[in-house]
Every structure is written in structure tokens, then in C-alpha cells.
């Protein structure tokens, strides 16, 4: 079985010379929901940006579907960045149109349905929305693509617990068995039950890749508790 995402000796050095990602090896299979977990500054966002082709590796390679990140891979990767890039002056409906123009695999009906169930007015301008609502809109846009790989950088940090439950259910029910989801977050206990595997990243390297139930079976504790142990300060 070939991996959907493959990183080999992946390294990224910024100008200060310290590698943010240091010779990282990682394979993510199709149909898996993976939690990318690590403390602040461990290289999570740098890794994600390289998978998305927003940063170029200093050394090593990252392949998505066997290809280097570029036009072809962007067609199949749906990315939720940690900060919003949506135009403040535009309305939510404008954003839907924008996504529909931009991505062949965008499903506007699905997006409208999700906006309705979270009570978000499509006519509202982005700048009038609260921080949490903006995040919900952004996530709805990203999850409404029929992509092969979803990469969600901190998808639930800014939203209230009730919406969090809805979002988690959305991830489960929208997800197709051929697609993979990478979720990067600190809120481990909220998403632990929906993950297949967890990847622990520390100082730019993978220190553990294991299924959630294997961690629970081997260590007799939740992933959240195990994370606290591994990364104890």
C-alpha cells in the first residue's frame, strides 16, 4: 500500500541555522485520521507548510500521492491554516463563491447545510463575525471540499465546546474512507476518540507514531495523559 503522504529525511532550516524540522521520516496512509501532536515550537506548522508547498525543504523530500507539492497536489489537499486569510470586507456567501470558483471539488450545498446548522448568516460580512464564528466559516469551507487529504491546523481551539462537538461529528460523517485527515492541535482529549493514529513530534523529529488504542493498551492511559508524560517540562 503506497502512502498518501511520505516524508523522507525532511529538513527545514530557517535563517538562524537551527533546523525547525530535522531529518524527519513519516508515512501517512489513506483513510486515516491522524493527530499531529507536539509542544510549541516542535515543528508542526513548518511540517504542514512543507506538505502544502508553502515552504520548500532545505533537504530531503515530501511527497503527496507520490508527487512533490505543487498545482497537482493542491487540487487534492484541503488546508486549514492556523490564521484566517478570508477577506474582511466580503460576505460569507462571497467566500462560498470564491471557493467554488477556485476548487473543482468544492461542494457548495454541503457548505450551506453546515452554515445553517451552526446558525451562520451567509449575508454577514466577515469583519462583523466573532473570532470563533470566523473560524467556523473557515473550517466549513475547508471541510466542504471532496479532497483526498485534509490538513487542519488548530481547527477547534477558538470555538465553544458545543460547536466543537458539531465540528468533530462533521469530520467523522463527511469523511470518506479513501481520504486522510491530519489534525494538529493541543486539545488532545477533545479529539482523541476520533483519531486512528497519533504522531508525536519533538524538536523537528517524529518520536512516536502509534494507534490510539495501542497507546491505551500498552500504557493504560489516554493519549492526553501519555502526551503529558512524554513532554513533561
Amino acid at each position: 500500500m503506497s502512502a498518501l503522504v511520505e516524508c523522507v529525511g525532511l529538513t527545514k532550516c530557517y535563517t538562524n541555522g537551527v533546523p525547525a524540522v530535522a531529518g524527519l521520516n513519516l508515512a501517512i496512509e489513506k483513510g486515516h485520521i491522524v493527530g499531529l501532536l507536539g509542544p510549541n515550537g516542535s515543528g508542526k506548522t513548518t511540517l504542514i507548510k512543507m506538505i502544502n508547498g508553502l515552504l520548500r525543504p532545505t533537504e530531503g523530500a515530501v511527497l503527496v500521492n507520490g508527487k512533490e507539492p505543487g498545482v497537482e497536489t493542491k487540487k487534492v489537499v484541503s488546508y486549514l491554516p492556523e490564521r484566517t486569510y478570508l477577506e474582511a470586507q466580503r460576505t460569507v456567501a462571497d467566500m462560498l463563491e470564491f471557493f467554488e470558483d477556485f476548487y473543482e471539488d468544492f461542494d457548495p450545498e454541503r457548505a450551506k447545510e453546515m452554515l445553517a446548522s451552526l446558525g451562520i448568516d451567509p449575508k454577514a460580512r466577515m469583519k462583523t463575525l466573532s473570532k470563533g464564528t470566523k473560524e467556523k466559516v473557515q473550517l466549513i469551507l475547508v471541510m466542504s471540499r471532496r479532497a483526498e487529504l485534509f490538513i487542519l491546523d488548530e481547527p477547534i481551539a477558538g470555538v465553544d465546546p458545543a460547536a466543537r462537538d458539531y465540528i468533530i461529528r462533521t469530520i467523522i460523517s463527511n469523511y470518506n474512507p479513501e481520504a486522510s485527515v491530519i489534525i494538529c492541535t493541543h486539545l488532545i482529549s477533545d479529539i482523541e476518540n476520533i483519531l486512528d493514529d497519533v504522531v508525536f513530534i519533538k524538536q523537528g523529529q517524529i518520536v512516536l507514531q502509534m494507534s490510539v488504542d495501542d497507546i491505551r493498551e500498552k500504557h493504560g492511559k489516554t493519549v492526553d495523559a501519555y502526551f503529558r508524560e512524554v513532554f513533561a517540562c
Binding site: G31, H32, I33, D165, I168, R169, I172, S173, Y175, P177, N193, I194, L195, D196, V212, D213
Partner: peptide, 11 residues
């Protein structure tokens, strides 16, 4: 049932 339980479909 996975959506109801809030767990991964593979699980």
C-alpha cells in the same frame, strides 16, 4: 454509529 458515538469510523 461512529458519528453518534463521536469515535473514529475505523474504530
Amino acid at each position: 454509529l461512529a458519528a453518534e458515538a463521536g469515535v473514529n469510523p475505523n474504530t
